[in-house]
Design a protein around this nucleic acid. Sequence first.
DNA 1: GAACGTAGTTAGGGACCCGT
DNA 2: ACGGGTCCCTAACTACGTTC
Length: 426
Amino acid sequence: MNKGIGRKIKYFRIKSDMTQEELAKDIVSVSYLSKIERNAADANPQVVKQICERLGIKPERTQDNHIQKEVHQWFNQLLNGELIRAYESYQMIEAEIESIIDAGLYWLVELHTLYYFVLTDREELAERKYIFLQQDIDKFNEIEHYYWLKFSGLYFADRYEYYDAFQSLMRAEKMYPKEHFQDELEIHDLYFQIAKVSTNLYYTYHARVYINRALTFYKNTYRLRRCGESHLIVGITAKRMNEINEAIEHFRLAKKLSETIKDDHLLIDYHRAMGDVYRDMQLNDEAIEYYKRTYELTKHHYSERELQAIMGLCRSYAQKGDNDSAAYWCEVAQQLIQTGESFSQLLSYEVNSYYYILHGFDQGFESLMVNDVLPFLKEKQLHYTYAHYLKLTANYYYNERKYKVSADYYAAANELLDVVRVVDNY
DNA sequence: GAACGTAGTTAGGGACCCGT
DNA sequence: ACGGGTCCCTAACTACGTTC
């Protein structure tokens, strides 16, 4: 009769800073309250009434449809990335927590809140929510568990922990509760996210397979922004498979879409992707034009994208042999990092290592690699990037005439690249 | 069919265990 | 030491069978 009330009692007891002993006093024993809270005992209505009175809440369940509607609308807004509307909904939902617990939506709301914090860049809140949810994994039902895997995956990805993100998202796909969803939006969102993470891990084959599924769906359902983002990913995979013309074609499609829907982020990413292609082909002047346009579009937003644009310029000039210009942009990057905005650790490390590349190596470089960059990449299991920096370190040792150490680093790098290939072909 | 016996179930409590 | 959870026990109640 009072099934499910335990969760509500526990929530409001903790909220009012009471222990089980305080709440149970003169009503039931502590151990019995513990059972009630865990829904292991179906308590006498009189007992429940007394407990609820002490907590100042209503013992009866609200059979209100409107909150269910409200909450599911919020879930959809998050899925569609409608952040402004999601923000408004969140304010409303937060105020109605009592009804949410009653409606059995408690965990689903908590799980989506994790994703909401990730989407809105509130890293600390997201971390706290992640740790909080992690303690209750065993209480999740099938659907809640699916969302746990998906959202913790996206949480990892947001922290640049792509390897963990990949593992989590793949597990989510395996246990995707098909019967629960009427349309195919959810599964294709998952495919899209897997593709994005795979791209960051250089799992080109995986990225290609998943993004094609997502793109087909987004095309058929006219989700233009996602189409654009998908074309960029397809292009990046094509570039990595040396299909340069195909890559450029997809990037151009993304650009067209970005103009149609007036999406700045997409337009910025297009220019950067084009810059990357031309830099790969050693056409540095063309690359610089695209990176400059990217920089103009992002300038003074103090964002990750701005820093990426600057580093694109730095790399291109360095590759071109124009060390003065490269040093200038490296300096700009260093100043941007010092604004205090939180940039990805990886990008900050790259800026630091470019400083040494451009101004000459010294012990500082060795220390940066051995103490910071390499352990960081190893821990985050970013194999591909790790291999890149291992090679860079190997080069450094080679120039220092420390051939034995250098050879070891080269060997380690090659071994890692094999790991990436094996995982990607799995 | 009333009285009694017995086995099973459930609300509830006390002692103890475990992690912090 | 403290808060919370678990194990095991008891009391009360129920369902069912047996006896007179």
